[in-house]
Structures are given as C-alpha cells and as structure tokens.
Design a protein around this nucleic acid. Structure first.
Lengths: 251, 251
DNA sequence: CCGATTTTGTTCTCACGTTCACAAGCTCCT
DNA sequence: AGGAGCTTGTGAACGTGAGAACAAAATCGG
C-alpha cells in the first residue's frame, strides 16, 4: 500500500520518474554493454562487470540504475536480459521511431548507408534534399526525395526525429521547417547553433569542435612549459598585472 | 607542502592556467561565433551579443572568458579580432595539427571529403585502411594507404591526433596501434568503449547514442500519461535459477 | 573636469553530478 | 538452521558548474 504522494522530508526532490540528464546520456552505453554481454552468452553480471564494460565506475552505474528501479539482486548481480529490456523500455527503443535525414551530402550519404539505425528502434523513412540533381538518387534501398515533400512525409509517417546534415547555411531554415512540420527532436550535424522553440529537443554533433577540444589538451601535453605565454599583441591598454601569484610586482 | 604565501585565502584554487572542462568545450563555439561576427564585418561585440550568437547566457560567457584573461573593455565589449586570436591560441588552433583517419568506410569517406578540416588548424595527412581493395583509392586529393604504414606516417608527420572510423570490431586494436605509434589524442566514431592508457585523451562521437537520448525525451513528451508504467512482467521473480557467471560463488 | 551610463570581471549562492562508505538483503556452506 | 560472504541500493560528503548580482573600469556628454 503505497500512499499516494507521501515523500520523506529529506528526499532529494527527484521529479516523479525524472532521471538526471547525465544518467540518461549513459543509459544507451549500458544498453550496448548489456547487448554485448548477452551476445557472449553471459546471463548475469555484477555492477563491477557492467561498469567495466561500459567504461564507468561501479558506484556511478549502480546509482544510475537505481533511478530506474531495483532491478538487481543483492549478492548476485543483474540478470542481463531483464536489465537490458528494462533499460530499452526506459529509453524508448522498444518502439520504433521514424526518422528523416535532411541534406544528402557526404555525411548524409554515410548516415543513409549506416546499418546501425534499423537495428535498434530507429527507422529512416526518408532522405531529403532540395537539390534537384540529388532527388531521385538511389541510396541503399531508399530514394532521395524532394525537401518540399517534408510536411507530407512527417504527417504520413508520424516522424518525430529529424537529422540535419546540411551545410551551415540552410540549417536554421531546414530546422524551422522541420519544427513547423511537427518534428520535436532534432539531431544537428551542421556547424551552427540552431534555435528552436520550447518543447523541441535538440542535440548537436560537431566534428570540428571535438577536434578542437582534443587540440587544447594536446597543446597542454606537448607544450607543458613551451607555451608562448604572452601574445605578440602587446599594447592593449596596459593590462592589469596578471601575475597575481607572486604579487611582488610593485615591490 | 604549503607554499609560504602563494595564494589568497579565498581563491578558488584554480590550477595555474587550468580551464574548467565545461569551459574548454564551449571555447570552440565562441570561436565560431566570433568568426561569424568577423565575417559580417563587426569589429566589437558585447558579451550579450556574443552569448546570443553562441547560444549561451552572457554571465556564463563572461565567466568562461575570464579564465583566459581580461580581454574585454568595460563599457565597450570585446574586440572581435583580438578575442578570436586569443581563443584560437588558447585552444591551440593557431598551429597545425596532423591527423590520420583510420577506416575508410562510409563515414571515413565523408570525413575525408569534409572541407572543414583544413580551414582551421587540422590537416589530414593520411587515410588508412587495412582492406587491400580500398588501398590506392583516390579520395579528393588523397590516396588511401595501408594501415601497416601507420607507424611510419605518425613518426614522419608528427601525428598527434587519430580518428577512428572503423566498425566496432577492430576499433580497440586500431586504437592500441595508434597509441603505440605515438598518437596521444583519439576521436572515436566506432560504437565501442575504447580503453587507453593515462596521458591519452579520447573523445567519442556516437550517432546511435544521440538518437537514443532524443528518443528518451521524445517518449516522455508523447507518452506523458500513456506509458505502461509497470510492465507487470511475467514472473521474473522465479528467475531461471541463475547459472551464475563465475560458476557459483566460492565454488 | 565630473557625473551618468554602459559593460566587464568577479563573488556568492545554489543545483547538479560524482564518489565513498555502509546497511540491507540474497545465496551458499556448514 | 544459522552464519559467512557477496553485491546491491542509498545516504552523505565532496567537487564542479550555472546563474544572479554587483563592484570596478571605461566611455561619453555637458
């Protein structure tokens, strides 16, 4: 008998079934690890095993899983198949999601050919591009269609996820069209910051940014002490003395 | 251990020139925004302008920039060119970074053709694949070379960044080879968790995971009250007796 | 030259995320 | 049956990041 809304005073005020964003981002990793274990014929795994497979530490994994419920068995571990189903259900990949890809350049081609889509809950229902010379091209078992057909396709196939692989220029306009057509989740590969109304989720994948982040760390590794500390653009208004640590500037 | 008088009592104990990771991840976005402003002929921008262009709020932007130094002018804003140079220098994209791409499938092709590389500090020095039928293929102005040549190329061109676009299977082995050859930063597109020794940075780009994260939120939007809250799964209590991974505890 | 105005740089506070440590609970052995 | 040995689930401490608010500094008009 669980009382309808009784919450202990010290409870962390977690929204009803609200899972922290950081945890949500890791659930797909756990799902993949579980699938790998399952394929290896392993039926039970401890949090330590799973954590190793997923590349996180076991405490974090246990806490993450605890947001879903108590699906483990103390002293034993987790049943791989059972947990896999629970995570898949939580994420929503037990159902099929219709996806459109807009922008059939190099990257669009690659994604269209990527087999990993259909395997787990996602189904590409259309490849769209506005360039007449691309429309009609066959890619795998699909044909590129005109971007003008977007609204029709979204309505017909209940498309809720759009992938933007256009260049930066038309990306915002494509995004607006997607949203207007009823798409409420967007995965953006174009190197621009897209703005969307509330209620629309957007995620960004940006190769260039990833490389730059790596470059930053790389620079710190190699140039540990060889950095050009002071740029060659000196006289910018006699900057306030930075060396704060020594403090003996005026002494 | 305590240095005599090196730090003010209230100082946030920030490592010398150590920039928070969250800030590092945003610097490339600022850099891009500044480049866009610069291309539009804008010479000065306030934190509000920049923040809008970068899709963050102005307080966060100012705080981020403050880690680099005091490059703005109170009452005026930031000089676009000057700030752009400072951020580029901090990230390390004022120098050129040699990059190898391993795995010339669909995605590898797409990246090889992607022009955005050379434009900003990154230079692809080799496309590598182990499949004999791919070696020798021309892509743009490059030719696919044999993966066996990796060590030679890394040494000759001072390659510090490797991009893995192989399938999941060979990814870890490719990764190990890269690391052994001297690569210290890896960008991984393969859907596996790679393990690398300390000192090697690794970042992961995973389409499937991004889609799953979107699916989770999508499910919560559409199924607000229509979720099968409790799956009432068939007697999982009577679990199939747990053959147990380790062959039984202490057995 | 001085005050009004603008905008940065920084401090303070709060929320979120990670990690530790341990009680609760399950299985197995004696 | 009862205790020993594991492993989960979670409370608490800790660290990092975000946002509000404000003092400091620069420009501009009078």
């Amino acid at each position: 008998m669980t009382p309808a809304r009784s919450r202990r005073p010290g409870a962390p005020t977690r929204t009803e079934r609200g899972i922290p964003e950081a945890t949500v981002a890791r659930l797909p990793v756990y799902l993949r690890a579980l699938t790998a274990l399952s394929d290896s014929g392993i039926a039970t795994a401890s949090s330590e095993d799973l954590a190793t497979a997923a590349g996180v530490n076991s405490a974090k994994l246990r806490k993450d899983l605890s947001y879903l419920g108590s699906y483990g068995t103390r002293g034993v571990g987790y049943d791989v198949e059972y947990l896999r189903y629970q995570i898949a259900r939580e994420i929503g990949v037990t159902q099929d999601w219709a996806v459109v890809i807009v922008g059939i350049g190099n990257l669009g081609h690659a994604l269209a050919n990527y087999s990993g889509f259909g395997t787990r809950g996602f189904r590409i229902v259309a490849l769209l591009d506005a360039a007449p010379e691309l429309v009609g091209e066959r890619i795998g078992d699909m044909v590129v269609r005109d971007f003008a057909e977007l609204e029709e396709i979204v309505a017909a196939d209940r498309v809720s996820i759009g992938v933007i692989t256009t260049p930066a220029g038309p990306a915002q306009e494509v995004c607006d069209r997607l949203v207007a057509a009823g798409v409420t989740s967007i995965l953006n590969f174009a190197p621009v910051v897209l703005s969307v109304p509330d209620g629309v989720d957007i995620r960004k994948v940006d190769l260039s940014i990833e490389l730059q982040i790596l470059a930053y760390h790389e620079q710190r590794k190699s140039g540990e002490a060889a950095l050009p500390e002071v740029p060659e653009l000196p006289a910018i208004n006699g900057l306030p003395d930075l060396p704060s640590v020594g403090g003996g500037v005026g002494a």
